[in-house]
Design a protein around this nucleic acid. Structure first.
Lengths: 229, 229
DNA sequence: AAATATAGTGTCAATACAACACTAAGTCAA
DNA sequence: TTGACTTAGTGTTGTATTGACACTATATTT
């Protein structure tokens, strides 16, 4: 169904910076482009926005189609639209960032031949388009946001130890934290539910497990509580 | 020059929430729509993005064309793109917010007949499209941002008293601040330049005037200084 | 039983924060 | 000119928060 307009229009896409955490640190999900421009280069997953879906729906759909991911934490980041960011024509992209629990999902390449892989955020290949700038912005946002909103839990398994939580913060903030101070503060937030379970299969004293208490979080959020860590 | 595409495309616009400050409090600049849809309703200034300009350039151009404002502080806010937010067709808008010194500029209606006016942010008329949601987001952002970045100076004249500065913060944050504590903190930021001038034409002891020291600000920003007030 | 590896815990000093009230300096009007 | 008025300007103190710091507990492995 061809469409005709008085004036040429920009194309509109969404792109997602998807972060995951494993023992090696912070990872980002990239797909390898199969077609020009930038064929063979790695890029953020994304694609064109359909006319009948919201921007967020478009981002979730592209994630599902291109990587198999579903039910991730997703938030709008920034809109990139400089002329020339796509060599073919004017393309404006609404960038999102997403957080996933690495254990939960195994990513898979989409139906077409493009491959999907996790890359360490501190050792990235050259990216297509201006995706390096988008990714840098996403990392900045993640770092800023994690300070005052407990979004980091989205990167951890549902049950986690305080040590895992601390490693997460140390990884994202890129600085070491004092163990005792961290534990005091984390527990003082009042949004961790202590479980009657401990780690399994570790070659040392097992750590107690906690769960993120979303109900308590919502309650405190409504009361204007400050979640700075 | 008509353009034809395989698939229909969303239209792309920018909208600006422009804030100013006067003795009555925080104001926002609105224009009255001349045409349908929402003819006669007040709306945020904005318009279509041209293919050869950046999003920010589009926002600045629309501001100039519709309100006569130039050289304002401008920052991207969020992109609103739900289907149905414009009754005619799919329109995605990249929203910006801007801060201006009310004394500096007199706004004027654009060449066409639409009128322009400042409205108190706490007493707004019904707005066109989803502009009430955009404006609410802009106010939230301003409030959050002013806490940790000294952007408030953009709302004040170049030379201002500490009392004016405090009134600004009290207005934006919507709570009273302690005079002595505020002055201590504000001066401790090290980004205020004390001038050898005082207020003129006031019916009481005149206050010393200060200027925002941008050089010092940049310096401290680079050093990772924390500008929380 | 010893070695190893991580879990888990409290104190103290320094700093930051919040509460609080009076004097100083100018204008204006009687 | 003096008194009333209005806003400018200034320090201290108690409280809360932060950051630095080291050892014991508990499990596994050899």
């Amino acid at each position: 169904m061809p469409a005709t307009y008085d004036h040429p229009r920009a194309a509109l896409t969404v792109d997602c910076a998807v972060f995951g955490l494993d023992d090696d640190g912070l990872k980002v999900l990239l797909i390898q482009r199969g077609i020009e421009p930038f064929a063979g280069r790695w890029a953020l997953p994304g694609g064109f926005v359909h006319l009948d879906e919201t921007l967020e729906q478009a981002a979730l759909r592209e994630l599902r189609e291109e990587t198999g991911l579903e039910r991730v934490f997703l938030e709008q980041l920034y809109t990139f639209g400089d002329p020339g960011r796509d060599p073919r024509e004017r393309v404006v992209t609404v960038a999102y960032y997403a957080l996933v629990r690495l254990g939960d999902h195994t990513v898979q390449a989409a139906t077409d031949a493009r491959s999907v892989a996790w890359f360490a955020t501190d050792d990235l290949p050259a990216l297509a388009f201006d995706h390096d700038a988008i990714l840098a912005a996403a990392l900045n946002r993640l770092q800023a946001k994690v300070r005052y909103q407990p979004i980091g839990f989205e990167l951890l398994p549902p049950k986690f130890s305080l040590t895992q939580l601390q490693r997460l913060y140390e990884t994202v903030l890129e600085r070491p934290l004092d163990k005792r101070n961290f534990r005091k503060k984390a527990l003082a937030l009042g949004i961790l539910q202590e479980l009657d379970e401990v780690e399994q299969d570790v070659a040392h004293r097992a750590a107690r497990l906690y769960r993120f208490d979303e109900a308590a979080y919502r309650q405190k959020l409504a009361d204007g509580f400050n979640f700075e860590l």
